[in-house]
Design a protein around this nucleic acid. Structure first.
Length: 570
DNA sequence: TAGAGGTGGAC
RNA sequence: UUUGUCCACCUCUA
């Protein structure tokens, strides 16, 4: 399968979108029909663990692979149907899953064949819209994480020159379910001129929902669970970003102004600077003007969303707070405080109350049942601690981690005591304490033995704290080349918008993986033999010697050539 | 060092 | 009991 060709086309789509913003893409449908694209889409769908659950036709990955030609047959069939125009997505299976806040989330589970087509559609949409989206959009996008969003927000709010005072926390009610298909199509039309392709998206959106034997056809909502739903939601909500950009950041009539006078203009004509950070339907805007003006802005946002996008702002969840009171975003609590060392005012990232409560509940849930065997319970606990602790490694909360470790220890101990009711405390302690030579720093000394192997439970305090200072991600389809999404780089918080001014500090591994992406996007064909596909990146000097990377010094090579290069050196 | 599989977390 | 992105970890292969 020729993924090289696909990557090349995706890069072209991205480049063309950047170079010709006014031009609309034509003849996109042929890519979705292409057997190579469909095959790649199928492989990504099958790589997900969701491929073992079926849609309405009952086909799973296992069922598909009972026939050695199952995958090829499916791709052939989809190709034929798409070309003939007879392809119709089947209704999705309605399933409700509990959300973190206790409410239910409706999912629409499509069949594997429909997911394959959706994946192919996403492969077309993503390169185009990665060139369109603004830097304030962080949700559901490649190379961007919640931590990137928090980092950007922290960076802006802790800039004393900007003097941000007010926080408008926003939440768009039932966002995914209320996106109107007609409006979404109109938005897509701004960049895409291919009725067949748009029709395909519309039929995908309008495919029926099967529930209790009845099928309904909605006129709004992107089915949660569809491969391309996240990118479609972003395409739709980009209109919000774009409106924000032209009404609060750079008004069209200011386009000729130097960046330094922009801030002055904003101050006199708008009343201050508003900085938006959006993660899917969850957003935060920081404002350095007056409180009453903040109220007006909130109302303006509300009317824009209602009038232009037909979306509601949930009134009880949309609050205006002072920056000193802090605010919750993406599971973190952002709060300004005096720094302990020098008394300087500084912005800190902490763990939100809700996240702490949820973690404690999860620990209790694992240790509640004593009929589970201790190896299973301890491995589950280890996974929870590692995963949760890792997500909150960017919180400045050493004290909290210590106290949670104490809580976890008490829970484990009470679990052990309850499990061995007949034994005394000393006997239980002996039973669940790892032998000294198997204890490790950063782990509890309580644990279990599975044969020779010790099942250890990591301590939250053993996970190193990380600085919330992440660099700006590159364009995923263009690598590290300069992407002029915005009119001009500027001063103050404008720097934040300029992707190249942002001097970020990242973990080694992140930087390394970025390099792989950048180099891969550059060629996608082995730079040594020129024939085979790139699978590896060769460093000269080696990565472990310098720990620095320069895309110019790295070679994209295939496995065989990589081995040859290493062999020649030794 | 790179791939494949799996586990956990955030939204 | 699903989708997408991201992060971390573990195992295996060379």
């Amino acid at each position: 399968m020729d993924t090289t060709q696909i990557l090349k086309i995706q890069t072209e789509l991205a480049q063309r979108t950047l170079a010709q913003p006014a031009e609309r893409h034509k003849r996109l449908y042929r890519f979705v029909c292409d057997e190579g694209w469909l095959r790649t889409g199928l492989e990504t769908v099958l790589a997900n663990k969701g491929s073992s659950t079926s849609g309405l036709d009952g086909v799973t990955k296992g069922r598909l692979d009972t026939n050695p030609d199952g995958r090829s047959n499916l791709v052939h069939q989809l190709h034929a149907e798409l070309v003939a125009g007879t392809y119709h997505p089947q209704p999705v299976k309605r399933v409700y899953i509990p959300k973190a806040n206790g409410k239910l989330r409706p999912l629409g589970i499509a069949t594997l064949r429909d997911r394959t087509v959706q994946a192919a559609v996403k492969m077309v949409l993503e390169p185009i819209y990665e060139s369109v989206f603004l830097p304030c959009s962080w949700g559901f996008r490649p190379l961007r994480s919640t931590h990137h969003a928090l980092s950007a927000l922290r960076r802006a709010t802790s800039d004393p020159r900007m003097g941000f005072k007010w926080i408008i926390e926003g939440d768009i009610a039932a966002c995914f379910d209320e996106i109107e298909h007609r409006l979404l199509r109109r938005v897509l039309k701004q960049r895409i001129q291919d009725e067949t392709f748009l029709d395909l998206i519309t039929t995908m959106l309008r495919c029926g929902i099967w529930e209790d034997g009845r099928v309904t056809y909605p006129s709004a909502g992107t089915p949660q669970g569809a491969v391309c739903s996240p990118v479609l939601a972003n395409v739709f909500l980009h209109e919000f970003d774009a409106w924000y950009l032209r009404t609060y950041r750079v008004r069209p009539e200011w386009a000729h102004l130097a960046p330094s006078s922009l801030q002055y203009r904003r101050k006199t004509e708008i009343g201050g600077t508003l900085m938006l950070t959006r993660y899917a339907d969850d957003w935060v805007a920081v404002w350095n003007g007056s409180r009453s003006r903040a109220e007006e802005i909130k109302a303006e946002i509300k009317t824009f969303l209602a009038d232009e996008l037909h979306l509601r702002l949930s009134e009880e969840k949309t609050l205006i707070t002072h920056i000193d009171d802090g605010f919750d975003f993406l599971g973190y609590r952002m709060q300004g405080d005096k720094r302990w060392s020098d008394g300087q005012w500084c912005f800190f990232s902490r763990v939100s109350e809700r996240a702490i409560r949820r973690f404690r509940d999860a620990v209790k849930e694992i240790t509640r049942y004593t009929f589970t065997d201790e190896v299973a319970a301890f491995t589950a606990l280890a996974g929870l601690i590692r995963g949760w602790g890792n997500y909150y490694a960017y919180a400045a909360e050493s004290r909290l981690m210590d106290s949670l470790d104490g809580f976890i220890y008490r829970e484990i101990w009470s679990y052990c005591r309850r499990k061995q009711r007949t034994l005394g405390a000393k006997a239980v302690y002996r039973m669940y304490t790892l032998p000294p030579h198997l204890r490790e720093v950063g782990y509890f000394h309580l644990g279990a033995m599975m044969g020779e192997q010790a099942v250890r439970i990591p301590r939250l305090s053993g996970i190193p704290r990380k600085a919330l200072r992440l660099g700006y991600p590159p364009h995923p389809y263009l690598g590290d080349i300069h992407t002029d999404v915005l009119p001009a780089p500027g001063t103050g918080d404008e720097c934040w918008w300029d992707q190249h001014v942002w001097a970020g500090q990242e973990g080694d591994r992140i930087g390394q993986r970025r390099l792989v992406t950048a180099v891969r996007m550059r060629t996608a064909v082995c730079e040594v033999c020129g024939t085979q596909l790139v699978d590896e990146v060769h460093h000269d000097p080696p990565w472990h010697e310098t720990h620095r990377h320069h895309p110019q010094q790295a070679l994209a090579v295939c496995v065989a050539c990589h081995r040859r290069l290493h062999g020649a050196k030794r």
